[in-house]
């Protein structure tokens, strides 16, 4: 077997999700090539070459791949996929955007959001917002798969795989980049953070999210939010944890003022330890929380921050 894993980039650098996609590839078994696509991504390629289990890094560095637009990336993957049995990417917004194009152009089905590898052709994936787990078998000659990275532990660094330059250049006159507004933060990235503290509608307004800052700083945690808090305009959309937002599985997840709708639970119920702080003792979040604290978050949060 021979696997091509698409590297995840964050502002041109290799993102942590890549090491987890490589781990999923190892669970399948076989040679693992990592493909790095973008503009000015040689540092990312060098970082990918250090990942354990990687046979070779292939790097396509060209202006046409800047911002990883779907049309040129899809076309490149179609060129490069021949000879591989599996093409993997993380279920990030880039992986979700690009991989179905490859699958369609190769006339094969795609498996999305795989959380476990049973064998080289059989996988587990959540359906119905994680309220059911499907075991699916693909008889396609080329298996195109997005990986839910919370299901796999990252491989370590210690390798020095060769880097091969891919000089395939495709044309793109259909789409162009206009602008990007990315949240700037010194905190860990939500998807990969070991600790996450999230606020919900109970926070009352966006200003009150500052109450989470001090605790997040002390814990080194990322800050998330429920859909209700995002829809109410308290915080930007990229903080949303849930079925249609980020899926997280940190060691500690603290839900503050979050009632616990199933769509939110779908995004965090695989966390190792869950703490819920809510004034409504009947809130469904308490049914999944290891430790629940009933009370007024405006009193509890400052006390928690001072005592940590």
């Amino acid at each position: 077997m021979s696997i091509l894993a698409l590297a995840d980039l964050h502002e041109g650098q290799l993102a942590g999700a890549t090491a987890r996609v490589v781990a999923a590839a190892q669970a399948i078994g076989g040679d693992i090539d990592v493909l790095v696509v973008g503009e000015g991504v040689h540092a990312a390629a060098e970082a990918a070459a250090k990942l354990d289990g990687v046979s070779k890094v292939r790097v396509a560095d060209n202006a046409v791949y800047a911002h990883q637009l779907a049309e040129p990336m899809g076309a490149l993957l179609v060129e490069l996929a021949d000879g591989y049995t599996h093409v993997l990417a993380s279920a990030s917004t880039t992986g979700k955007n690009v991989l179905p194009r490859l699958a369609a152009l190769k006339d094969v089905s795609q498996l999305s959001d795989v959380i476990a590898v049973e064998s080289a052709d059989t996988f587990k994936r959540p359906i119905y917002a994680g309220n059911a787990i499907a075991t699916v078998k693909s008889d396609e000659a080329l298996k195109v798969i997005t990986v839910r990275t919370t299901g796999f532990d990252a491989v370590s660094d210690g390798n020095s795989a060769p880097i091969e330059v891919v000089d395939t250049v495709v044309e793109n006159n259909q789409s162009s980049f206009v602008k990007e507004e990315l949240a700037k933060s010194d905190r860990p990235e939500l998807g990969g953070a070991k600790m996450v503290i999230s606020g919900g509608r109970g926070m009352g307004n966006g200003d009150n999210f500052k109450l989470l800052d001090g605790i997040a700083d002390k814990l080194g945690a990322a800050i998330g939010a429920s859909r209700a808090a995002v829809d109410a305009g308290f915080v930007p959309n990229d903080m949303q944890v849930g079925q249609t937002g980020k899926i997280v599985a940190p060691d500690l997840y603290i839900a503050v003022g979050i009632s616990g709708a199933i769509q939110h639970l779908a995004g965090m119920k695989d966390s190792k330890v869950i703490v819920a702080i809510n004034k409504d003792e009947e809130a469904p979040i308490f049914q999944v929380a290891d430790y629940g604290l009933v009370g007024d978050l405006f009193e509890i949060l400052p006390e928690l921050e001072s005592k940590l």
């Binding site: 964050h10 917004t93 789409s175 980049f177 602008k179 990007e180 507004e181 959309n237 990229d238």
Partner: peptide, 11 residues
């Protein structure tokens, strides 16, 4: 809506 924020593209 992309990971980390918003991206605008012209098609």
């Amino acid at each position: 809506e992309i990971d980390g924020g918003l991206q605008t593209i012209a098609l």
